[in-house]
């Protein structure tokens, strides 16, 4: 096991240093193509720092950040719950599967952001329309992965549980859910990614308040250093959210395996 000190050194050397070099290259590049095309790294850093120190700016950023995050997770949670329910039902009752498959199947290949104008039409501008599309977008991968995960549990396990007298509820709790969990978790990660994409896309497409919207807004106002700065912020925010989900789901799987 590498020591904490060794890990810290590795993080700086292989994590921060390359990024620092790339920042340096960025600085050089903006010197070559000009600040109007590519604001320099220092200009962007200064703009972001300035925003952090301006209460008004901070409010603006916070408002938009919360808007985006709210939509993502409201949609994701709803979509996951629906997706799990539908996935379970489809895996358990072939009648449900036969029923719902033809309805869900055509929805998969549609790029979900393309549904945003339709839903804005039906539900108006604002959170509801975006959340609705995110719900649809997230429930689909959850349904697929839940269904597959449950179906993939070896029949031998199901039979041996039944032969030991397991009730339906017990079968689900002790055999099917644990067996399907890794696959369901995989579906959740995909759904999370998709939720972020839909949220940002909706903001760019329908001018909804949010982080994606700010990027375009700063650009329209000619504040290119803030525009690039906003992109950098989005990169870090999304990376952090993604890491959090991976870490959280890893812990959940770890705990789940340890408990068995």
């Amino acid at each position: 096991m590498p020591t904490a000190a060794a890990r810290a050194v590795k993080f700086v050397r292989d994590g921060l240093l390359p990024l620092a070099v790339l920042a340096g290259l960025w600085q050089l590049a903006s010197g070559i193509v000009g600040e109007e095309t590519l604001p320099s790294f220092t200009a962007v850093a200064r703009a972001l720092l300035g925003s952090a120190l301006s209460a008004e700016r901070l409010d603006l950023l916070e408002e938009n950040f919360l808007a985006t995050v709210f939509r993502i997770y409201a949609g994701l949670v709803l979509g996951t719950m629906l997706g799990l329910a539908i996935g379970f039902a489809m895996a358990r009752f072939s009648a449900v599967e036969d029923c719902l498959n033809p309805i869900l199947a055509p929805l998969y290949p549609i790029p979900k952001p393309a549904l945003v104008p339709l839903f804005v039409m039906w539900l108006g501008i604002g959170h509801a329309s975006v959340v609705a599309v995110i719900v649809i977008g997230t429930l689909l991968p959850i349904v697929v992965n839940t269904y597959r995960g449950i179906r993939a549990v070896p029949q031998s396990k199901v039979w041996s549980a039944r032969s030991l007298g397991a009730s339906e509820a017990r079968l689900w709790r002790a055999v099917l859910l644990p067996g399907a969990l890794p696959q369901i978790v995989n579906g959740f990660r995909i759904a999370h990614n998709l939720a972020v994409v839909i949220a940002i896309a909706a903001e760019l497409v329908a001018s909804q308040k949010g982080m994606g919207f700010l990027i375009g807004d700063f650009g329209a106002a000619g504040a290119y250093d803030m525009m690039f700065g906003m992109v950098v912020v989005v990169v870090f925010v999304v990376a952090a959210l993604d890491r959090a989900v991976v870490w959280g789901t890893d812990r959940m799987l770890h705990w789940h395996y340890a408990a068995r």
Partner: peptide, 26 residues
């Protein structure tokens, strides 16, 4: 590998559509 691995790891989850304004600028 050393130079780009952290960048790819950091930017992979980001929706590339957020870059539309930048690409339109360029």
């Amino acid at each position: 590998r050393w130079l780009f691995e952290p960048l790819f790891s950091l930017t992979y989850p980001m929706p590339k559509i957020a870059l539309i304004p930048i690409f339109v600028l360029w």
